[in-house]
Write a protein that binds this DNA or RNA. Structure first.
Lengths: 110, 110
DNA sequence: TCCATATATCAAGAATAATAGATATATGTG
DNA sequence: CACATATATCTATTATTCTTGATATATGGA
């Protein structure tokens, strides 16, 4: 992860539709969602959604797979990990008790 | 954490100076850094840095404390946790092996 | 091959954000 | 109180990003 990609990824997440999409896909896990389905759920026009999905793709936060005529999108957990690792690099100045609570935030209960 | 603040926070991180600042402060931990010191290290003009620090403050990713004539800034680990928790809410669709690697990214070796 | 479905690209106007010069405010010191 | 230091605010210009209508491309089926 370099700073250019990190900036692009954070910029991707600073727009409501794209943040909604990534959160949907994170919840969907390995099931993913078709592009059209995502647009329907979020009530976003087709071309706008396509543009936004492409931005998420290029940010490395999302990946896709063709499925017949549709294209299925998934959260890219490796990409998300890379971004968070870049942000938290050398965290907490030697005091683990500062950054451990950050980890707790992400423990899933599934 | 609501979506409006999350969007504002990700937007804060989508600008190079501000991402640099937060990463510096995350590394600095509880020591923090003075506003002027941050500007010197990053080679950013005083008023630009002040504006950017204010945006980080309002995003909840950073807090500050007056220290005589200077103002010392710190990463706000609670704020960071809140943002990441919002992003990763209900993650991984029931398959912990998908999101556990995301956690590993943030384990500090201090 | 022709048509329908699903998604992507293009182009332009509208909205938003970044930067920096000038200036203001706040604190400490003598 | 006068002055120096440290940070914040204002304002305008420039640059970037968002959205959308129109159109293009890709796939599957008859």
């Amino acid at each position: 992860m370099d700073i250019t990609l990190a900036l692009f990824a954070f910029s991707a997440l600073s727009q409501e539709t794209r943040l909604d999409v990534l959160r949907l896909l994170i919840k969907a896990g390995q099931t993913g969602m078709n592009a059209g389905e995502i647009g329907d759920v979020l009530g976003v026009r087709q071309n706008t959604m396509s543009t936004n999905l492409n931005i998420l793709l290029r940010s490395g936060l999302v990946r896709n797979e063709r499925e017949g005529r549709s294209i299925r999108y998934f959260a890219d957990f490796d990409g998300i990990r890379g971004l968070l690792a870049f942000l938290m690099e050398d965290c907490c100045g030697g005091k683990p008790e500062l950054c451990e609570p950050v980890l707790d935030a992400i423990v899933c209960d599934c």
